[in-house]
Design a protein around this nucleic acid. Structure first.
Length: 251
DNA sequence: ATGTCAAATGGTATTTGA
Protein backbone atom coordinates (compact mmCIF):
# COMPACT_ATOMS: atom_id res chain seq x y z
CA UNK A 1 0.00 0.00 0.00
CA UNK A 2 1.49 3.30 -1.12
CA UNK A 3 0.22 6.48 0.52
CA UNK A 4 1.49 9.85 -0.70
CA UNK A 5 1.05 13.31 0.80
CA UNK A 6 1.52 16.37 -1.39
CA UNK A 7 0.88 20.08 -0.95
CA UNK A 8 0.23 20.96 -4.59
CA UNK A 9 -0.01 24.76 -4.18
CA UNK A 10 -3.20 25.12 -6.24
CA UNK A 11 -4.74 22.08 -7.89
CA UNK A 12 -5.96 24.39 -10.65
CA UNK A 13 -2.40 25.35 -11.52
CA UNK A 14 -1.04 21.85 -10.81
CA UNK A 15 -3.62 19.51 -12.36
CA UNK A 16 -1.37 18.45 -15.24
CA UNK A 17 1.43 17.67 -12.80
CA UNK A 18 -0.88 15.76 -10.45
CA UNK A 19 -2.42 13.82 -13.31
CA UNK A 20 1.01 12.94 -14.67
CA UNK A 21 2.18 11.99 -11.19
CA UNK A 22 -0.65 9.51 -10.65
CA UNK A 23 -0.08 8.07 -14.14
CA UNK A 24 3.64 7.47 -13.64
CA UNK A 25 3.85 6.40 -9.98
CA UNK A 26 2.25 3.59 -8.02
CA UNK A 27 -0.06 5.55 -5.73
CA UNK A 28 -2.93 3.90 -3.85
CA UNK A 29 -3.95 6.92 -1.80
CA UNK A 30 -3.03 10.57 -2.41
CA UNK A 31 -3.50 13.10 0.38
CA UNK A 32 -3.62 16.59 -1.10
CA UNK A 33 -3.27 20.02 0.50
CA UNK A 34 -3.80 23.55 -0.81
CA UNK A 35 -6.18 22.76 -3.63
CA UNK A 36 -7.20 26.46 -3.56
CA UNK A 37 -10.53 25.52 -5.17
CA UNK A 38 -14.14 25.33 -4.23
CA UNK A 39 -15.83 21.94 -4.52
CA UNK A 40 -17.44 22.85 -7.87
CA UNK A 41 -14.05 23.38 -9.47
CA UNK A 42 -12.44 20.21 -8.07
CA UNK A 43 -11.62 17.79 -10.95
CA UNK A 44 -13.67 14.84 -9.70
CA UNK A 45 -14.06 13.46 -13.22
CA UNK A 46 -10.37 13.77 -13.96
CA UNK A 47 -9.48 11.73 -10.90
CA UNK A 48 -12.16 9.17 -11.79
CA UNK A 49 -10.64 8.71 -15.24
CA UNK A 50 -7.39 7.85 -13.50
CA UNK A 51 -9.23 5.34 -11.27
CA UNK A 52 -9.52 7.38 -8.09
CA UNK A 53 -12.49 8.15 -5.86
CA UNK A 54 -12.16 11.50 -4.14
CA UNK A 55 -13.25 13.51 -1.13
CA UNK A 56 -12.55 17.24 -1.28
CA UNK A 57 -13.11 19.85 1.39
CA UNK A 58 -12.71 23.07 -0.54
CA UNK A 59 -12.95 26.69 0.35
CA UNK A 60 -12.05 28.68 -2.74
CA UNK A 61 -9.09 30.99 -2.93
CA UNK A 62 -7.16 29.54 0.02
CA UNK A 63 -6.59 26.20 1.74
CA UNK A 64 -8.55 23.14 0.57
CA UNK A 65 -7.67 19.50 1.30
CA UNK A 66 -8.57 16.28 -0.49
CA UNK A 67 -8.14 12.53 -0.54
CA UNK A 68 -7.93 10.46 -3.74
CA UNK A 69 -8.04 6.67 -3.40
CA UNK A 70 -8.01 3.73 -5.79
CA UNK A 71 -8.54 1.25 -2.92
CA UNK A 72 -12.09 2.35 -1.98
CA UNK A 73 -13.14 5.50 -0.19
CA UNK A 74 -15.71 6.11 2.53
CA UNK A 75 -16.08 9.63 3.86
CA UNK A 76 -15.34 9.94 7.59
CA UNK A 77 -15.14 13.65 8.42
CA UNK A 78 -14.39 17.04 6.91
CA UNK A 79 -14.06 19.00 10.11
CA UNK A 80 -12.20 19.22 13.43
CA UNK A 81 -15.11 21.05 15.01
CA UNK A 82 -13.49 24.47 15.33
CA UNK A 83 -15.61 27.64 15.05
CA UNK A 84 -15.48 29.30 11.60
CA UNK A 85 -13.33 26.41 10.46
CA UNK A 86 -11.16 26.70 7.36
CA UNK A 87 -10.76 23.84 4.86
CA UNK A 88 -7.74 22.15 6.45
CA UNK A 89 -8.90 18.67 7.55
CA UNK A 90 -10.41 15.74 5.72
CA UNK A 91 -10.65 12.10 6.81
CA UNK A 92 -11.72 8.99 4.91
CA UNK A 93 -11.59 5.22 5.25
CA UNK A 94 -9.59 3.81 2.34
CA UNK A 95 -8.50 0.19 1.94
CA UNK A 96 -8.99 -0.55 5.62
CA UNK A 97 -7.05 2.49 6.85
CA UNK A 98 -8.35 5.81 8.09
CA UNK A 99 -6.33 8.46 6.24
CA UNK A 100 -6.41 12.11 7.23
CA UNK A 101 -5.11 14.94 5.04
CA UNK A 102 -4.17 18.03 7.03
CA UNK A 103 -3.04 21.53 6.12
CA UNK A 104 -1.86 23.05 9.38
CA UNK A 105 -2.09 26.87 9.56
CA UNK A 106 1.14 28.66 8.66
CA UNK A 107 1.24 30.91 11.72
CA UNK A 108 2.90 33.80 9.89
CA UNK A 109 4.96 35.06 12.88
CA UNK A 110 5.19 34.33 16.59
CA UNK A 111 3.34 37.51 17.56
CA UNK A 112 0.57 37.09 14.97
CA UNK A 113 -2.94 35.92 15.92
CA UNK A 114 -2.54 33.23 13.26
CA UNK A 115 0.21 31.71 15.38
CA UNK A 116 -2.14 31.26 18.33
CA UNK A 117 -4.67 29.82 15.90
CA UNK A 118 -2.04 27.38 14.65
CA UNK A 119 -1.37 26.09 18.18
CA UNK A 120 -5.09 25.82 18.88
CA UNK A 121 -5.62 23.96 15.60
CA UNK A 122 -2.86 21.48 16.45
CA UNK A 123 -4.43 20.91 19.87
CA UNK A 124 -7.71 20.03 18.20
CA UNK A 125 -5.88 17.71 15.81
CA UNK A 126 -4.26 15.90 18.75
CA UNK A 127 -7.66 15.46 20.39
CA UNK A 128 -9.03 13.98 17.18
CA UNK A 129 -5.96 11.75 16.86
CA UNK A 130 -6.48 10.52 20.42
CA UNK A 131 -9.96 9.26 19.57
CA UNK A 132 -8.56 7.22 16.66
CA UNK A 133 -5.27 5.94 18.09
CA UNK A 134 -6.46 2.34 18.50
CA UNK A 135 -7.38 2.15 14.81
CA UNK A 136 -5.21 1.83 11.68
CA UNK A 137 -4.64 5.52 10.95
CA UNK A 138 -2.32 7.69 8.85
CA UNK A 139 -2.37 11.43 9.58
CA UNK A 140 -0.37 13.21 6.91
CA UNK A 141 0.03 16.54 5.27
CA UNK A 142 1.68 19.93 5.44
CA UNK A 143 2.27 20.48 9.16
CA UNK A 144 4.11 23.79 8.69
CA UNK A 145 6.34 22.64 11.56
CA UNK A 146 9.85 21.18 11.32
CA UNK A 147 9.91 18.70 14.23
CA UNK A 148 13.60 19.12 15.13
CA UNK A 149 16.62 21.18 14.08
CA UNK A 150 17.67 18.27 11.85
CA UNK A 151 14.64 19.18 9.75
CA UNK A 152 15.81 22.78 9.13
CA UNK A 153 18.51 23.80 6.64
CA UNK A 154 19.91 26.40 9.02
CA UNK A 155 18.38 26.54 12.53
CA UNK A 156 20.00 29.96 13.07
CA UNK A 157 17.62 31.33 10.42
CA UNK A 158 14.62 30.12 12.42
CA UNK A 159 15.30 31.62 15.84
CA UNK A 160 12.11 33.44 16.88
CA UNK A 161 10.40 32.27 13.68
CA UNK A 162 7.46 30.03 13.02
CA UNK A 163 7.92 26.41 11.89
CA UNK A 164 10.65 25.71 14.47
CA UNK A 165 9.44 27.21 17.76
CA UNK A 166 9.29 25.10 20.92
CA UNK A 167 5.53 25.54 21.28
CA UNK A 168 4.85 24.36 17.73
CA UNK A 169 7.16 21.39 18.15
CA UNK A 170 5.48 20.43 21.42
CA UNK A 171 2.06 20.72 19.75
CA UNK A 172 3.13 18.31 17.00
CA UNK A 173 4.93 15.92 19.35
CA UNK A 174 1.58 15.44 21.10
CA UNK A 175 0.97 12.92 18.30
CA UNK A 176 4.11 11.02 19.32
CA UNK A 177 3.01 11.13 22.95
CA UNK A 178 -0.20 9.38 21.90
CA UNK A 179 1.86 6.62 20.22
CA UNK A 180 1.79 7.84 16.62
CA UNK A 181 5.04 7.34 14.71
CA UNK A 182 6.72 9.87 12.38
CA UNK A 183 7.25 7.41 9.51
CA UNK A 184 10.26 9.17 8.01
CA UNK A 185 12.07 9.15 11.34
CA UNK A 186 11.33 5.47 11.99
CA UNK A 187 12.96 4.62 8.67
CA UNK A 188 15.87 7.09 8.93
CA UNK A 189 16.61 8.98 12.12
CA UNK A 190 19.55 11.03 10.89
CA UNK A 191 18.98 12.38 7.34
CA UNK A 192 17.37 15.81 6.83
CA UNK A 193 14.85 14.61 4.18
CA UNK A 194 13.56 18.08 3.31
CA UNK A 195 10.11 18.25 1.71
CA UNK A 196 9.72 21.99 0.99
CA UNK A 197 11.96 24.62 -0.56
CA UNK A 198 11.05 28.28 -1.02
CA UNK A 199 10.61 29.29 -4.65
CA UNK A 200 12.84 32.29 -3.94
CA UNK A 201 16.58 32.75 -3.81
CA UNK A 202 17.40 29.48 -5.52
CA UNK A 203 16.49 27.62 -2.34
CA UNK A 204 15.98 24.27 -4.06
CA UNK A 205 19.26 24.42 -5.96
CA UNK A 206 21.05 25.27 -2.71
CA UNK A 207 19.04 22.64 -0.79
CA UNK A 208 17.86 25.20 1.72
CA UNK A 209 14.73 23.32 2.71
CA UNK A 210 12.54 22.19 5.57
CA UNK A 211 10.96 18.86 6.47
CA UNK A 212 7.41 19.97 7.17
CA UNK A 213 5.36 17.40 5.22
CA UNK A 214 4.92 14.54 7.65
CA UNK A 215 3.27 11.11 7.73
CA UNK A 216 2.19 9.92 11.18
CA UNK A 217 1.20 6.27 11.61
CA UNK A 218 -0.90 4.89 14.47
CA UNK A 219 0.83 2.27 16.69
CA UNK A 220 -0.81 -0.64 14.87
CA UNK A 221 0.59 0.53 11.52
CA UNK A 222 4.12 1.32 12.73
CA UNK A 223 5.38 -2.26 12.23
CA UNK A 224 4.09 -2.12 8.65
CA UNK A 225 6.21 0.90 7.65
CA UNK A 226 8.42 -0.40 4.85
CA UNK A 227 9.79 2.75 3.19
CA UNK A 228 9.43 6.53 3.09
CA UNK A 229 10.81 8.73 0.35
CA UNK A 230 10.69 12.32 -0.83
CA UNK A 231 9.90 12.49 -4.55
CA UNK A 232 12.49 15.08 -5.52
CA UNK A 233 12.12 14.23 -9.21
CA UNK A 234 8.69 15.82 -9.11
CA UNK A 235 10.09 18.92 -7.40
CA UNK A 236 12.59 19.25 -10.29
CA UNK A 237 9.96 19.21 -13.05
CA UNK A 238 8.66 22.29 -14.88
CA UNK A 239 6.28 24.45 -12.85
CA UNK A 240 6.51 22.36 -9.68
CA UNK A 241 4.79 22.93 -6.38
CA UNK A 242 7.16 24.30 -3.77
CA UNK A 243 6.50 21.05 -1.85
CA UNK A 244 7.69 17.62 -3.01
CA UNK A 245 5.37 14.63 -2.67
CA UNK A 246 6.29 12.35 0.24
CA UNK A 247 5.51 8.65 -0.13
CA UNK A 248 4.96 5.94 2.48
CA UNK A 249 4.95 2.23 1.65
CA UNK A 250 3.14 -0.04 4.12
CA UNK A 251 3.57 -3.81 4.10
C1' DA B 1 13.15 42.22 3.21
C1' DT B 2 13.57 38.10 0.02
C1' DG B 3 16.85 36.18 -7.30
C1' DT B 4 8.92 33.26 -6.57
C1' DC B 5 4.37 31.71 -7.42
C1' DA B 6 -0.75 31.78 -7.42
C1' DA B 7 -5.35 33.99 -6.82
C1' DA B 8 -8.28 37.93 -6.97
C1' DT B 9 -9.31 42.33 -8.53
C1' DG B 10 -12.45 46.35 -12.44
C1' DG B 11 -6.65 44.54 -13.38
C1' DT B 12 -3.41 45.37 -18.34
C1' DA B 13 -0.48 46.34 -12.00
C1' DT B 14 -1.19 45.68 -7.30
C1' DT B 15 -2.35 43.23 -3.06
C1' DT B 16 -2.42 39.11 -0.18
C1' DG B 17 -0.72 34.80 1.40
C1' DA B 18 2.67 31.46 1.50
Amino acid sequence: MNIVTWNVNSLTARWDRVSNFLSTRDVDILLIQETKQNDAKFPTAGFAELGYETYHVGQGQWNGVAIASRVSLERVSGSLGLPDEEARYVAARCGGITVISVYVPNGRSLDNPHYAYKLDWLEHLARDAATRVADDVVIAGDFNVAPTDLDVYDPADFVDATHASDAERRAVSALADLGYVDAQRQVDATSPAFTWWDYRQGAYRRNRGLRIDLLWCSPSLAPRIDAVWVDREEREEEKPSDHAPVALRLN
